[in-house]
Amino acid sequence: MAVELGTGLVAVGAGLAIGITAIAAAIAEKEIGAAAVGAMAEKEELFGKGLILTVIPETLVIFGLVVAILIIGMAGG
């Protein structure tokens, strides 16, 4: 299992791209999710709106994923 340092660093880079964006999305969704559940307790019909607002920060991870794939593609290709 001899992996070159460069390859390893690429893997770490890709991992960071996903990991950090995921943490960011999680923090954002935590706040919105709590508020959305609160709103839903008041008015159940708000489920749809609440869900949409809650998942908006997910875009961050999606970008992270794309960046990770690009990093791996660039290095591996």
Binding site: I69, L70, G73, M74, G76, G77
Partner: peptide, 12 residues
């Protein structure tokens, strides 16, 4: 599959 010089999963 290779897109714009990057090798990515065809699935993507």
């Amino acid at each position: 599959v290779t897109i714009a010089g990057n090798e990515v999963h065809l699935l993507l």
